[in-house]
């Protein structure tokens, strides 16, 4: 799984940086956005992409032993679970009547 070349290291480092930036965006979005539904946007998309980017970077930078396959598995898990949990939470809040901050005044379920 190792890819011990300068190009691989450079791409890996870039992916690592991109991942950290996306995760930072997810964090700031979680703190800054006004209501649960908007925060779910940030958490589902930015975190999923950031996590997958960092996992891909680690794959390029060289994973120990047989870890490459596990990292791919982990990336698939994150990719599947991120949007699903966001949707589950949003549906739960929507059904229990948390009104979204909306221009048209918000509406219940």
């Amino acid at each position: 799984m190792t890819f011990p070349s300068l190009v691989g290291d450079a791409i890996g480092g870039a992916l690592l940086l991109v991942g950290v930036v996306f995760l930072l965006g997810g964090t700031i979005g979680l703190i800054r956005l006004p209501d649960l539904y908007s925060r779910a946007h940030a958490a589902s998309k930015c975190d999923t992409v950031g996590a997958c980017s960092i996992l891909a970077a680690l794959l390029l930078l060289g994973a120990p032993g047989s870890a490459g396959l596990k990292i791919v598995l982990l990336a698939l898990l994150v990719l599947a679970s991120g949007p699903t949990t966001a949707h589950a939470l949003a549906r739960c809040a929507f059904r229990s009547g948390v009104a979204p901050v909306a221009k048209d005044g918000g509406e219940g379920p």
Binding site: L23, G26, T27, L36, A40, A51, L55, L58, V78, T85
Partner: peptide
């Protein structure tokens, strides 16, 4: 739900930290 979402996000970050 906000709190659960935040815990979920913390969990994702802890997961990536573990891999790092």
């Amino acid at each position: 739900e906000d709190r659960i979402l935040a815990v979920n996000v913390v969990g994702t970050k802890a997961l990536i930290t573990l891999v790092l």
